[in-house]
């Protein structure tokens, strides 16, 4: 009888360890937006490829710019018993704070944010996008001939603001006389206004542009038409305009997701906040090989990266 119980226990433990880890994610824009949502989708796809589809399943709802719709999806997934429910967007925070206590056995993660609401089943994650922004700012200042650089920002919050502030600091660190013109269009999705903002920057003399969030696709087109340099963030935007995209800051959320998954598998459902940065390689600077940045300019970026990792450079100046 004892032997039967032992075998049964081993079978149960074995099946538990082999049980498929199920993740559900809600995202504000399309999973191929070359920006915020794509960065999370790519990370989930990478983890699935590493763990195998039998061991890791993920479902998602993208384009959920209506927070109430996202909240409904989050609650449904939690009720269905997903191991991890991700609310990929700072706008979903208040919904998550309300829903998570109703499902204490389900783990939730949200970002970009650093607040777990004091809940044991909520993880938070954010990006130190000011770091990569600083590096791209150094590159932009080194390559700009006019010394005027334009920034098309979405809304002055979260990682977008961090990125813009870091970028400005990088430009000024490289060229104190440079002029950085910043415009926030007040939307993450207004492609028309972002495009017009980019045209305005070019009219104001900018010969290098950058921008954050999914509405920059039109702005990249403006840069391409005007022959102006472009620096991307969140995802690799090279395919939008290979002849003018110089480099991109790419978010790699696997750096955050892997420890979260490991924690959940070991029974810790939340209570921690994570940050991706240059040091943990959650932020990567990817060059466009077709554009061909010189080794001399790359050395400036490398020095900035080393300085940030070593703590000698603080992009936001403490």
């Amino acid at each position: 009888m004892k032997r039967i119980l032992l075998i049964a226990s081993l079978l149960i433990l074995s099946s538990m360890s082999l049980a498929q880890f199920r993740v559900a994610a809600v995202m504000p824009s399309a999973t191929n937006d070359l920006a915020f949502s794509q960065s999370m989708f790519d990370a989930l796809s990478t983890i699935q490829a590493e763990m195998g589809a039998d061991n890791f399943e993920f479902v998602f709802v993208d384009g959920t710019f209506i927070v109430d719709d996202a909240a409904a999806a989050i609650r449904d997934w939690a009720a269905e018993g997903y191991d991890l429910v991700i609310a990929h967007g700072s706008q979903y925070g208040s919904s998550l704070e309300e829903i998570a206590p109703d499902f204490p056995d389900v783990s939730f993660a949200w970002g970009t944010a650093g607040n777990t609401f004091g809940l044991d089943n909520v993880y938070a994650y954010e990006a130190a996008s000011d770091e990569g922004g600083y590096v791209l700012g150094v590159l932009a200042a080194a390559l700009s001939k006019s010394g005027t650089i334009g920034v098309v920002g979405p809304i002055e919050v979260g990682d977008a603001k961090l990125y813009v502030d870091g970028f400005k600091a990088g430009v000024i660190a490289q060229n104190e006389a440079a002029q950085v013109n910043v415009n926030y269009i007040g939307s993450f999705s207004d492609v028309a206004l972002a495009t017009e903002a980019a045209k305005t920057h070019v009219s104001a003399g900018a010969d290098a542009l950058t921008g954050s969030a999914q509405m920059v696709v039109g702005a990249v087109g403006v840069a391409q038409k005007a022959g102006v340099l472009w620096f991307g963030t969140q995802a690799n935007q090279t395919e939008l305009a290979a002849d003018i995209v110089v480099a991109n800051q790419v978010y790699d959320w696997t750096v955050v997701l892997k420890p979260i998954i490991a924690n959940i598998q070991s029974g810790q459902l939340g209570g921690e906040a994570y940050t991706i940065n240059l040091e943990n390689k959650g932020l990567l600077i990817e060059y466009n090989d077709f554009f061909g940045v010189s080794d001399e300019v790359k050395a400036l970026a490398d020095a900035a990266i080393a300085g940030i990792i070593a703590g000698d450079i603080s992009p936001l100046g403490e």
């Binding site: 824009s29 399309a30 937006d33 384009g63 710019f65 999705s189 492609v191 028309a192 495009t195 999914q214 509405m215 696709v217 039109g218 087109g221």
Partner: peptide, 9 residues
């Protein structure tokens, strides 16, 4: 004006 399409353009 934009020469591109995106979700909810």
């Amino acid at each position: 004006l934009l020469n591109v399409f995106q979700q909810n353009l």
